[in-house]
Computed example of a mutant assay.
Amino acid sequence: MDVVETLVRHGGVAPVALLAARGCSSAQVRGAVRRGQVFHPRRGWIALPEADPMLVSAARSGGRVTCVSALALMMVHTPGSPVTHLRVPTTARRLPSTPATIHRSDVGRPEDPIVDGIDVALSIAVRCLSRDDAVAVLDSVVNLRLLRRSEVVDVLAELPQCYRDYAGLIDGGAQSGIETRFRLGCRALNLPLRSQVPIGGVGRVDFVIGDRLVVEVDGRETHAPATAFAADRRRDLALKERGYLVLRLTYAQVMYEWPRVAALLRSLVARQEHRWAARHRRAGLVEL
Rank of each mutant, 00 (worst) to 15 (best):
R127S: 05
G177H: 04
E216Q: 15
V261I: 15
V65L: 01
W258L: 05
M255R: 14
I170V: 14
V152A: 11
A21V: 05
A32D: 11
G172V: 04
E257K: 15
R94I: 14
V269W: 04
R60G: 04
P113K: 15
V13S: 09
S105Q: 13
L169H: 06
H40V: 01
V261Q: 11
G219V: 09
H223P: 00
R9C: 10
F229Y: 11
R187T: 13
R271D: 03
V38E: 00
G117A: 13
N190Y: 12
V208K: 02
D206H: 00
I209W: 04
C186N: 08
S69T: 08
V56Y: 07
R248I: 06
L71A: 11
I114S: 14
P82Q: 12
P99W: 08
A278E: 12
C67K: 02
C162H: 06
A167P: 03
E179S: 06
A167S: 10
A70D: 01
A72K: 07
M74I: 12
G177Q: 00
L247T: 12
H77S: 08
E257G: 10
Q161V: 07
L159V: 05
D112N: 04
A72H: 05
R145C: 10
S195T: 05
A252T: 11
A32S: 13
S267I: 02
D171C: 00
F39L: 06
A224R: 13
T84H: 03
